[in-house]
Design a protein around this nucleic acid. Structure first.
Length: 538
RNA sequence: GCGCCUGUAGCUCAAUUGGAUAGAGCAACGGAUUUCUAAUCCGUAGGUUACAGGUUCGAUUCCUGUCAGGCGCACCA
C-alpha cells in the first residue's frame, strides 16, 4: 500500500512540476498520528522551485484526490497527511494471518555474519552475550528481508595466548616448574580446575614445551565446549565455527601470494608490509615480522579471503569497541582481495558495564574477576537479558545493574509484551476461536482504537527492513512495546467478546493479526512465547 | 597529541536517520477491578537534550569550538 502511494506521489510530482525526485535520498513518507502516513515532499519541492511549501502542499493534496482518490489534508508549514480507506488495513490483516507477512522472497544475496569470536582462553562474559544476541537477531532479520545468511564464529586457536593458556594450566600441577607464574598467563579460578582435570587424565607432567602444548590443546577443547554450553542457554548457535589454525594451514599462503602478486606488499627493515594506505588506512601494516613470524593481521586477512571465496555478497563483522582502530586496515585488505562487489560492514557493539547495586563491577579476564554467562543465566531470566540488550542501540555503551534486573524483573518490558500475547491467547481460547471464522472483508471500523491497532501492524515490515539496513536492533523491541501498549489499552477499555457476534469477530480478527505480529517480533528476538502468564505463579 | 564512541527526566534507555507537543520503564504521588488475566489501565510530578555558536521552513540529530567520560593509536593477539 505504501509502496503504491509512493509511486503515485512520485508520478504526480513528475506530472505537475516536471521534477523527478529520488525517493530513496531522504525520508519522504512516514507513519504519523496526524493521519495514516505523512509526507514532507513539499519542503523539498519548495527548495527546488523557490516557492511556498504550504501552497505546493495544497496543490498536491487536491490532485492526490483528483488523480488517485487519496484523502489528505495539509498542516502548518506544509506537511501532507494521508488517510487510507479502512478496508486496506483489513486486507493487510488477512496477509498477516495467511502469509509470512512482509517476508521478502529470496533475493539471491548471501550474507555472512560473524560475531562473538572470543578467544578460547576463558568463559564468555556479558559483552559476548550482547554481540551474540544481536547477531542472532540480525541474522533472522536479514533472512526475513530476503537474504541467505550464515552465522559464523571465528576462533583464534593458534596464537601466543593459547601457549600462555597451556603454560598457566601446566604451572599449577607441575612439580618442577619455574618460580614465577608465566608472564601474560591467565589467573582465573577455572585455570586451576582445568589443571586438576588435566592432571587426572595425563598425570603429573613436567614443565616442558611439549607438555605445555599438550596442556594448551586440552584447555582449549575444554573451554570451547564450555562456551558452547553457555551459548546454548541463550539459544545462540552458528552455521560455522572457523578455526584460525585451519585458516593458517589452508589459506595463508594463497592470500599472501595474491597480495604480493598484486604488488601490494614491500620489505622494509626485514619485515613485510601491506600497503593498506592505498586503501584509506593511515599507515601501512606489518604482516610478516622481521623474525619470520606473521602478525595476527595476516590470518585475519586470510579468514576474510576465505569468506569472499565462498561467494558472500555481504560480510558483517560484529566487533568490540577495542577493535575500532582495526577497521580501516581490515577494510583495506578486503578491498584488495574482493572480486566483484562485496559489501563489508563492521558493527561495533559498545561496552556493557555491570553494576551491582549501583557500584561498578570491575572485570578482567587476566585476573579472573568477572561474571560469567552461566552465572547470569542462572540469576536472571534469559528473556529479560535478551530484551534488555536488544532494546539498546549497539553503538551505545550501557550500564546493566544485576540486582536491579532481578528486583525489577516482574516489571520488565519483556513481560509487558509477553503478557499482551498471553492475554490474547487466553481470550481466543475462551472464544473458542475457529480461524476460518475470521472476517477479512469488512469495509469500515466502528472503533477508532481498533483501527489504530490495525494501522500499527502495518508498520511492522518497514521496521524490520529498516533494521536489516541500519542494524539498529532496538527498533523491534521498541515497536513491540508500543504495539503491546495499544493492545493492553484496548483490552482494558473495551469488552472484546460480547453478544454482538459480528462485531466480536471483527475485533477478534484484528487482534488475532496483532498477536501474529507479536509472535513474529518476539521470534526475531529469540524470546519465548507464553500462552499463559500469572504473576502469583512466579 | 591524534582517531573512534558517548553525553537526553532522580536511575536505565528511546526518539520513524533533519520533522509536527523530546517519549517509555523503574523510582515518587493519586486514582481504576461484582466483567474476557491488575504482570493491566488512567492521572500528577519530573527537561535550557553537557555548554557556546553556526547551517534552514524546522536541529536531540548535521558543521565548528569548549568541557566531561570510555576505548583505541605495536614487528601484541
Amino acid at each position: 500500500m505504501i509502496d503504491k502511494f509512493v509511486k503515485d506521489l512520485n508520478e504526480l510530482v513528475k506530472q505537475i512540476f516536471s521534477i523527478e525526485i529520488d525517493l530513496k535520498d531522504y525520508r519522504m513518507v512516514s507513519f504519523t498520528e496526524h493521519g495514516d502516513v505523512s509526507t514532507n515532499i513539499s519542503f523539498e519541492l519548495a527548495k527546488k522551485l523557490k516557492k511556498n511549501p504550504y501552497e505546493i502542499a495544497e496543490g498536491l493534496s487536491k490532485n492526490l484526490f483528483k488523480e488517485y482518490g487519496y484523502n489528505s489534508y495539509v498542516t502548518k508549514p506544509g506537511f501532507i497527511n494521508i488517510f487510507f480507506p479502512d478496508k486496506v488495513f483489513v486486507e493487510e490483516c488477512k496477509k498477516i494471518v495467511k502469509t509470512f507477512y512482509g517476508k521478502k522472497d529470496f533475493n539471491k544475496k548471501k550474507v555472512n555474519i560473524e560475531f562473538i569470536s572470543a578467544n578460547p582462553t576463558g568463559p564468555l562474559v556479558l559483552v559476548n552475550l550482547r554481540a551474540g544476541i544481536a547477531g542472532m537477531m540480525l541474522a533472522k532479520v536479514m533472512e526475513y528481508s530476503g537474504f541467505y545468511v550464515e552465522k559464523e564464529n571465528y576462533i583464534n586457536d593458534a596464537g601466543n595466548q593459547i601457549y600462555n593458556l597451556g603454560a598457566s594450566v601446566l604451572y599449577h600441577i607441575s612439580s618442577e616448574k619455574p618460580e614465577k607464574f608465566p608472564e601474560n598467563g591467565y589467573k582465573g579460578w577455572y585455570i586451576k580446575e582445568i589443571a586438576k582435570m588435566f592432571e587426572k587424565t595425563f598425570g603429573n607432567l613436567n614443565y616442558t614445551q611439549k607438555n605445555i602444548k599438550k596442556a594448551s590443546e586440552f584447555a582449549k577443547e575444554y573451554i570451547l565446549n564450555w562456551q558452547k554450553k553457555s551459548l546454548k542457554n541463550f539459544s545462540i548457535d552458528f552455521n560455522n565455527w572457523v578455526f584460525e589454525s585451519d585458516i593458517k594451514e589452508k589459506y595463508l599462503d594463497e592470500t599472501l601470494k595474491i597480495l604480493t602478486d598484486k604488488n601490494l606488499t614491500y620489505l622494509q627493515d626485514k619485515a613485510l608490509y601491506l600497503k593498506t594506505t592505498t586503501m584509506g588506512d593511515d599507515k601501512d601494516r606489518v604482516i610478516i615480522k622481521s623474525n619470520g613470524e606473521h602478525t595476527y593481521f595476516l590470518p585475519d586477512i586470510a579468514y576474510h579471503y576465505f569468506k569472499i571465496k565462498r561467494g558472500f555478497d555481504k560480510l558483517i563483522d560484529i566487533l568490540g569497541p577495542d577493535h575500532h582502530g582495526y577497521i580501516p586496515r581490515l577494510t583495506a585488505s578486503i578491498k584488495m582481495l574482493k572480486k566483484d562487489d562485496v559489501d563489508f560492514d563492521v558493527i561495533i557493539a559498545q561496552l556493557v558495564t555491570i553494576l551491582k547495586n549501583g557500584q561498578k563491577y570491575e572485570m578482567s579476564k587476566r585476573t579472573g574477576e568477572f561474571i560469567t554467562l552461566d552465572e547470569l543465566s542462572e540469576e536472571i531470566d534469559p528473556d529479560v537479558l535478551k530484551f534488555t540488550i536488544l532494546s539498546r542501540k549497539l553503538s551505545q555503551p550501557f550500564n546493566f545493574d544485576i540486582e536491579k534486573a532481578k528486583e525489577e524483573s516482574m516489571e520488565n518490558p519483556v513481560y509487558y509484551v509477553q503478557y499482551s500475547y498471553a492475554r490474547l491467547s487466553s481470550l481466543f481460547d475462551k472464544f473458542n476461536l475457529n480461524k476460518n471464522e475470521l472476517n477479512f472483508s469488512f469495509e469500515k471500523f466502528e472503533n477508532k482504537d481498533l483501527r489504530n491497532i490495525a494501522k500499527k501492524l502495518f508498520e511492522f515490515p518497514y521496521i524490520v527492513y529498516n533494521v536489516a539496513s541500519s542494524y539498529e536492533i532496538q527498533k523491534i523491541p521498541n515497536y513491540l512495546v508500543e504495539l503491546s501498549s495499544l493492545i493492553h489499552q484496548f483490552y482494558y477499555n473495551y469488552r472484546i467478546i460480547d453478544d454482538d457476534r459480528d462485531e466480536t469477530i471483527k475485533r477478534i480478527t484484528i487482534l488475532y493479526a496483532a498477536r501474529e505480529i507479536i509472535k513474529n517480533g518476539l521470534s526475531l528476538m529469540g524470546i519465548t512465547l507464553k500462552e499463559r502468564m500469572f504473576k502469583n505463579e512466579v
